[in-house]
Amino acid sequence: MNDGGQRQFGPLGKVLVIIPTYNEVENIGPIVDRVRTAVPDAHILVADDNSPDGTGKAADEIAAADDQVHVLHRKGKEGLGAAYLAGFAWGRENGYGVLVEMDADGSHQPEELPRLLTALKGADLVLGSRWVPGGRVVNWPKSREVISRGGSLYSRLALGLSVRDVTGGYRAFRTETLDGLGLGEVASQGYCFQVDLARRAVEAGYHVVEVPITFVDREVGDSKMSRDILVEALWRVTGWGITSRANKVLGRKTP
């Protein structure tokens, strides 16, 4: 992981918080209110995957009353990665300098976003981390914590990364960082999407910083975690690890 050295980082520019949604009608209003309070200058993009519970309509009503809230309606449920890639494209097209990933369910606390943005002034990418000193999880069953810690540890070892929370989804990117990650080649969809972007950033030599966060389990709605998502993460990470080591032996750059 690049330590940044004496490199000079430019100003951050406009901030866009991207919130993917699928059946989050009870959560979307509260999370938008909390973001607007925590970072009043930030804009919000709700990327809704045609939620059957009316989340998209609720987001439209919020946006109609607040010109800092925008809604991107997608055709259907295509996965977390696809939703974020669409949100990144929208943010880049509309001139935002910082793109933030945030869950809709409140597990990523908007009140901690100012600390991530402060850290980004001296970094290319900031990860909200549960597994660095000061980070923690609240209201998680022990089994969920074991799976998350184990997945992050396996990813770190398989890919040779020093990042502690490789799978976390609370992140702040400089837009130019995303421009250098080869997003057109990203095919991962579930939570391994987060692993994919982290390993691409590290391998590209970007300065990645982890900031401790308190991750609070959702109180309303259903988790999107599934067996298929875990299986996808396992085989993709294993494949990336094998490819990376083979390329190092052969002196080739990992894609």
Rank of each mutant, 00 (worst) to 15 (best):
V209H: 03
G135N: 12
A198S: 08
R156P: 13
L80P: 07
A104T: 14
Y170L: 13
G205W: 00
G106M: 02
N94G: 03
E176F: 13
L161W: 14
V163S: 09
G134H: 06
A119Y: 07
N139C: 12
Q109I: 03
Q189Y: 14
Y170C: 13
E185Q: 12
L80W: 05
C192H: 11
G184H: 15
L99I: 09
A82Q: 05
V186F: 15
R174L: 12
E101G: 11
Y96F: 09
S155C: 10
L161K: 11
E93W: 06
A198F: 11
E78R: 15
V138L: 09
G168L: 02
L120M: 04
G135V: 08
R144C: 04
S152N: 10
S107K: 12
V195Y: 01
S143N: 06
T118P: 12
P133T: 10
Q189M: 14
G168I: 06
D165C: 04
R136E: 07
T175Q: 12
G180A: 14
P133Q: 02
F88I: 00
A172F: 12
Y206S: 05
K75T: 15
A158G: 08
N139M: 03
K121Q: 00
P133D: 04
L113A: 01
Q189K: 14
D179E: 15
L159W: 07
S152L: 13
S162K: 06
E176G: 08
W90H: 01
G87K: 01
M102V: 11
S162A: 06
E78N: 14
N139L: 10
R164M: 08
N139K: 09
L127T: 02
V146G: 04
G106I: 11
A158W: 05
K77S: 12
H70R: 06
S143E: 10
N94E: 08
V186P: 15
D103W: 15
H108K: 09
R144Y: 01
A198K: 11
G150N: 04
Q109F: 11
F193K: 07
R156Q: 15
E101F: 05
L120V: 07
L153N: 07
Q68K: 11
H73Y: 04
E111Y: 13
R156K: 08
W131C: 08
S188Y: 11
G87S: 02
V138M: 15
Q189R: 14
W90K: 09
R130M: 08
G180I: 10
G190H: 03
R149H: 03
D179Y: 10
R164N: 01
G135I: 10
G151W: 01
H73Q: 06
E78Q: 12
T167I: 09
W90S: 07
V69A: 02
W140P: 02
S143F: 05
H70V: 08
V146N: 07
G168F: 09
G122P: 00
F88T: 00
